[in-house]
Computed example of a mutant assay.
Amino acid sequence: MKSFSIEEIAVLVNGEQIGNCNDQINAPEQIENAIKGNITFIGSSKYVGLWEKSNASLALVYEGIPILPGEGKAFIKVKNPDLAMAVLLDAFEPEPPFFETDIHPTAVIDKTVKLGKGCKVGANSYIGRNVVLGDNVTIYPNVSVFDDCTIGNETVIWSGTVIRERSKIGSHCIFHSNVSIGSDGFGYRPSEDGRGLVKIKHIGNVVIGNGVEVGSNSCIDRGKFSSTILGDGCKIDNLVQIGHNSVLGKCCIMAGNSGLAGSVTLGDGVIIGGSASIKDHVTIHSGAKVGAGSGVIADVQAGKSVVGYPACDSREKMKQWVALRKLGRN
């Protein structure tokens, strides 16, 4: 078990210690569940009332909250509790699952595969022809990487993930369990006789930049005849659908159950709320935000926030909702 003194944590998060406590800190915990030896977090004044009943030894506290720790406890005041928490969780992170051998004997690796230094491949994984793995790539059990894929240095791929042929993956990416990358896009047209559907084949690929993280059970479809692209630093939640030929700029965020239809373009730093849906061939420009549950059917200007179904400017939509509420009272 990892543990730290309060002084060590103060240095780690670059904070100011308030109060005295000699307890070793062995785990972070929610304020209402914390016990002696735990550190918790007070990021806003709404949690101040919970501190009096908390058994935590230590709390990271936003420096703007006028509160004292009390006898036998301590605070570390910080400018940004969320970022300080991220540093602290890194420090307390447990060791990853153990590999007894770097390349498990049940893994099937084609003779043409190029493995970088320090790669790990778990049990029952499959690596196809002409795949190139960079240095220190970690592939957990039951992963499939098909022909002609490239995967950059330090990328981690969790169990159940399938990376289809010709995909190009950057460095320092994380794909959580059961991610699907490079499946066919959804494309059908009525047959000439009107009695069936003709499948539109997708022969492109997926290109993913550096530092991208994709949550469990999310799907990123290949392009029809070019690439579906995710820029550096994008963060994709669980159960997200990204349609064929969509292009995401740098550092976009998509929350759970949201989806992009085909050929959607997101600029840099776009944020898509949970369960939001984006119509095909729509462009959402850099810095825009789409509220949870919204349906976007037209382009969104840079920096704008839109909500609702169909989505429109958030301030305008709020006025509409207020007017509707007033009508309901009459």
Rank of each mutant, 00 (worst) to 15 (best):
S226Q: 12
N178R: 00
V198F: 13
S218M: 02
P190S: 05
K168E: 11
C219F: 02
D221W: 08
V198W: 11
S216A: 15
S177T: 14
E165V: 02
T155L: 14
S183P: 05
D147I: 02
S226L: 10
D193K: 01
S218W: 04
I208Q: 03
G194S: 09
F146C: 15
C149Q: 07
F175R: 13
I157Y: 06
S227H: 07
H202W: 10
G223V: 10
E165H: 04
V156D: 14
I174R: 13
G231H: 02
G187Q: 08
E192Q: 14
N178Q: 09
E165F: 04
S216D: 07
V162D: 08
V198Q: 08
G196N: 03
G223H: 06
H202L: 07
S218D: 03
R195N: 14
R222P: 03
S159L: 00
P190G: 07
K168C: 09
H172T: 09
C173E: 06
S191P: 00
I229R: 04
F175H: 14
I157W: 03
N178I: 08
S171Q: 01
H176C: 13
F146W: 15
K168N: 10
G170M: 11
I151C: 00
T161P: 11
G187M: 09
S191W: 12
V156T: 15
I157A: 07
S183T: 07
D147Y: 04
G196D: 06
K199H: 13
G194M: 12
S218H: 05
R195P: 02
T161I: 12
T150N: 14
F225N: 12
V206C: 02
K224I: 15
R195D: 07
N178L: 04
N217G: 13
I181S: 03
G223F: 02
N210K: 06
D193P: 04
E165C: 03
S191R: 12
I181W: 04
D184C: 09
E192F: 08
S218Y: 03
I200Y: 05
D147R: 06
